[in-house]
Write a protein that binds this DNA or RNA. Structure first.
Lengths: 218, 218
DNA sequence: TAGATTGTTAATCGATTAACAATC
DNA sequence: TAGATTGTTAATCGATTAACAATC
């Protein structure tokens, strides 16, 4: 499936699947820090995440030597390193496109902050929605999309429009400078190779699980 | 990462990664059918999905011989087969747990129907929300969770509660008979091996993409 | 020191791709 | 028939795991 879009992690020798696990490590480590723990081991982290300690050590060793034999990893230090590797030190300003129920939920979700992202703009084409306030932001008309992205230098967007509008809106965002899209539209988007797309598709996830579920309780 | 939860597809020789692609095939084929197409080839399908024709043929051949040399696949027939394989012929009644912005968005999303699922119950613990109507459903008190799941024989649930409540609610759902959970809580859930969990985590997806995005436009 | 745990190598396991005979 | 495309095999590629020397 390459990785969902035309995007291929070119210039790098680092497996994309490894990059994709770093956010999970970061999240687990952040919880540990909140619990007041100072150090952890690949084994403990592996138990939390349901994966092998070998995999965690191998993944981390792709980026450097962050641990100490006999001791394990200093949590605060490792968090800092992972944030740096993932380029989360400066906040990414993200556009939410589509202000329906889902766009509304995303805009009101406060879990982006402190994890590297801030929803900074919301767009919709519906005159009823334009001007509405959501979590401190005012819904902008879709016509402002390109100008705003260009002026503000926004690089990341979350797509929450109906499938029928998704490709057209994507083309406009990409032309304006968006380079990473998290799409909630149930459709495979076509983008240039330098643009990343990742998908969230509840129906796909449920269908995947349905395969294994016995309809009657065993 | 095994596959995210303790769940491991036991009794089966079919790779989970293959099962996970079937919903994508099904979705693309459904669009093709709506466009009025009658047949397709592994090549055409592969182009739509950004994957190789060989992979599609190999995946499908895991479950049977659905195509014809020289002609390709009859779309309607293949859709029927995939729906059957994925056990989507009867509608799955799904519980949404948590009636915040996200639970609201999920309950109002009409994309579940016609794809094998129906949101049938919504639960929340907030007295302010209990009794509220959402897309024809009335928000039930969390106290009714176990009784409803048991009485109705519900097997699938969508978890849209805060991280702090997620594990406790999960334990209750599992005890009551839930066997597949789509979780929006940013936490790794612990479940028995016979329960599946899949996660939707926008922050994780954005962090994954951030690794590859140049902050300045190249 | 002794025990614990890293980083790394080599072995294993699994997934993807290329190629082609079969056949519609 | 000739062209197209499947299903499948074998080769390739990539990811995970086991094991252990190094060392804190």
């Amino acid at each position: 499936m390459s990785n969902g879009s035309g995007f291929s992690p070119v210039h790098n020798t680092i497996p994309d699947i490894v990059v994709g696990r770093l956010p999970l490590y970061l999240r687990a480590l952040t919880y540990m820090a909140e619990e007041g723990k100072a150090t952890t081991s690949s084994q403990e982290l592996g138990e939390r995440l349901g994966m092998s300690s070998a995999q965690i050590r191998k993944d981390l060793s792709t980026f450097g030597e962050f641990g100490k034999q006999g001791t394990g990893y200093h949590i605060g230090y490792l968090i800092g390193q992972l944030r740096q590797i993932l380029k989360l030190d400066d906040e990414w300003r993200v556009a939410v496109v589509g202000a329906g129920f889902l766009g509304h939920a995303l805009t009101n979700y406060n879990g982006f902050r402190h994890r590297g992202f801030r929803i900074s703009w919301v767009f919709d084409s519906d005159p009823e929605k334009i001007g509405e306030e959501m979590n401190g932001l005012v819904v902008q008309p879709m016509g402002e999309l390109e100008a705003t992205i260009q002026r503000e230098g926004s690089r990341m967007a979350i797509l929450a429009v109906p499938a029928s509008a998704a490709q057209e809106v994507t083309d406009r965002m990409v032309a304006a400078g968006i380079r990473a899209i998290l799409s909630y539209a149930p459709i495979n988007l076509t983008v240039p190779p330098y643009v990343q797309v990742r998908y969230s598709a509840p129906v796909v996830e449920l269908q995947h699980m349905a395969f294994y579920v016995d309809k009657a309780l065993v």
